[in-house]
Structure formats: C-alpha cells, structure tokens
Nucleic acid binder design. Structure first.
Lengths: 204, 204
DNA sequence: CCTTTAGGATTACGACCATACTACAATTGG
DNA sequence: CCAATTGTAGTATGGTCGTAATCCTAAAGG
C-alpha cells in the first residue's frame, strides 16, 4: 500500500469526476424514491436499481443507508433553496410560491415535490445524523423564504418563515391524507387563507 | 359452514367480551407503538408482544396489518374527539387545547400524543383502507374542534377547523424534526401566532 | 499497440426481520 | 368432561442492511 519512494500517490485510473457523478446520480434518484415511498419504505437495492446500479456498489459511495438519506435530504433542501432564490427575482414571487405549493398538482406529485411535505414526521423519528442534516437545511430554506416574504429587510424574519413553512407542510400533508377530493381541495384553500392571515399580522 | 337447522348459531365458550377486550388492548398499545416507531417501523410481532401476546394470535383478531393500522387510527382519532368534547365544557377550551398541543411536553412525547402529528405523511402514502379510516376520523375531529372554536354556531366551520389542524400538525412536526432547542421552541411559538392570526380573520 | 493495474461494479452470501399462515396446545364455560 | 375458542410456537417466503469475493474496464506506462 505504501509507495516506497514516491510522492505522486494515487493515480486516477478513472476520470476524477466519474465517482462523484455517480454519487450525485444516486442522490438525485434517491430524492424521488424516498419522497415517493418514504424513508423506511425504500430499500438500498431499490434505490441503487433506480440509479442503474446494484446493491453491492452502494457501500463504495456511502457508509450506510442513513448517510445516503442525510445526503439526499441536504440536497433536496438545497434544491428548494435554489428555487426560492430564483423566485426572488420575479414579481410576486412569494404569492406564486404559495400558490404552487398548495396546488392540486403538488398534492398529487409528492415524488417531485417538497421533501418536508413528504417526509417530515419520518425525519422527526430518524437518527441524529438525519435530523442534523434536515435542521441545517430547513434553516437555510427559511432564510431564503424570509427574503422572499419581505424583500426589503434581508436577514430578518427567519422564524416567521419557519411558521409559514409549518403551515404549508401541514396543509399539504393533510390534503394528501384526506380521501375526499372536495375536502382535500378545501384544505388547500384554507392553508392559503392561513398564510394570508399570518402575513396580515405585524411582525412581532 | 351453514347451520342446517339452527338459529342459535355459535355458542360462546369464552366470555363474549374476552376476545373483544383483547382486541381493544391490542389497538390501545398499537396506538402508542405506531406513533413512536411509525407505521412501517412497527412489526406485527412487536405490536403483539406489547399486548402480551405472540404473533400467531394476531390473525385471529385482524385480517392484516393494514386492518389493525386502520382500526388503530380510527381509535386514536376517536380518543382525540373525546378529548375535544371534554374541553368544550371548560372555559377557554380552545386556547387550552392549542397551548397543550404546541407545548414542549407534547413535542417530546409523540407516543402519547396526536396521531396526525406523528403519522400524517405515512398515512398519505398508505393503502386506501388506512386513508379511508383516517379521513373519516379527522373529519369527526374537525367537527368537534369547530364547536370548540365557535361554541355559538355548532356545525359550521369544519373547514376552518381543518385549516387549524393543518397548522397545529405542521408546527408540531417541524418542532420535532429540528435539532436545535431554541429554534424548535420558536417554531412552537410561531405556530401559536399563526392560530391567533387565523382566528382574527373573518370566517369567509 | 499492448500489458499492467487499480477502481468500480457485479453477484453472492450472511444474519436478521418482515408478513402471513398453520398446526398444536391450553384454557374455560357449559 | 367435552368442545369450542383463544393463544403458542413454528414455518414459509420474501425483504432488509451490510460484507466479501470476483469480475470488468478504463486509463497509465512501456
């Protein structure tokens, strides 16, 4: 294992970015699968098959399933952050975000939707590793959402944004769970009303 | 299977209520276990062991695990309904309910807390049988919560109550997931603010 | 151009746990 | 004391995570 006289060290036989690209592909497809079938409902074999690989290759990329879940949650929340930053450049960005979040389309497509809406109570039961990843990620999301809510005062209102996230997530989950189309859409509408009500109250 | 001449049918050798009592015991302890470890995280063997039985006896009481989960969710939501009815007789029942729901104690004790807060996103991914049980149960809860919110006008405001439930559930889940005591408590406080804001707005 | 070589993937396996089901035994009321 | 009902214990099948040995291939060097 030791190079007796050398410094050169490891020579990259594969292109340096090949492994990293594979890792990213695994994380991306795992995002969809985990949101669709849940953290406990998705097995390593299935997750790898989604990425076009077999189970054995998994542990060359991640130390454990929890490590993949943590990495995936971090990635998902960063993607959501990027979306919020993008909306910050558009007029009525916040209103458009809320409308899309509480839409029947988002309700019916958990696979490509908000990770919090799909997984929040499972995250709460998960290992510290996963909860740490979620906590750091959601605070970042909250900061960008706060900017979107009050473009004039950057850096303030993270906690108000967390309250807004709680409303959005709870509403989405309830609309998904209720097995009655009319009541489900009524829930989405009530969620939008709750957001408006929250915005109408003074900051603190 | 057909009794050729009889009406009397089955003669109960065990006290008629013995099996029913066992069934109820299973459902009660399953409520705690499922909320603690999740729907996917709890196995039939564990659930039966909690009730002091072994796995084999399970299928004398329930047709499948889904059937038990559905029965348990129905029971849990009926228990929540009973709590709300009880609070309706006391002054400031609604405010007290919200305060208890968004308390650190409830956040730290999912096992004996709200079933929606512990299981909502898993319910949304579950079989039609489970979703039906949840839907019927939560609408009952919403009706009683509506009465608690506006004691003067019974029967109205179910949808507003559903909006309130969404806020409570989302807030509780977020507070449980966040791995930072200060931010977690801030989330609980923001949830209470959101409820107040919702109450301050006109009905429709 | 061809061999060497190491990194990455495959297949196979181990130990364990899941649901579902079935004989068999224990219990208990009549 | 009988017999139905309830519970035990064990089985079947499949899925889980994680590990280990084998194979393949792409790149480096002669």
């Amino acid at each position: 294992m030791q190079h007796p006289s050398g410094e050169g060290g490891t020579v990259a036989r594969y292109g340096t970015e090949h492994k990293e690209a594979t890792r990213r592909r695994i994380i991306k497809v795992a995002g969809r699968r985990l949101k669709k079938d849940g953290l406990d409902g998705s097995g390593v074999t299935t997750l790898m098959a989604d990425a076009g690989l077999t189970n054995g290759a998994f542990y060359a990329h991640f130390a454990s399933k929890d490590a993949l879940v943590a990495a995936t949650i971090t990635d998902q929340l960063q993607e959501q952050q990027a979306l919020l930053r993008q909306l910050a450049d558009e007029p009525d960005g916040f209103a458009r975000f809320v409308r899309a979040y509480l839409s029947p389309g988002h309700r019916n497509d958990a696979e490509s939707g908000c990770p919090s809406g799909a997984l929040l109570d499972e995250v709460a039961r998960s290992s510290p590793e996963i909860r740490r990843a979620y906590s750091a990620g959601i605070l970042g999301v909250a900061d960008d959402l706060a900017t979107l809510m009050a473009p004039g005062a950057p850096g303030t209102g993270r906690r108000r944004a967390l309250g807004c996230i709680a409303i959005l997530v709870g509403t989405l989950q309830l609309a998904r769970a209720i097995d009655d189309p009319q009541e489900s859409e009524a829930v989405l509408a009530e969620g939008a009303r709750a957001i408006s009500a929250l915005l109408a109250t003074p900051e603190h």
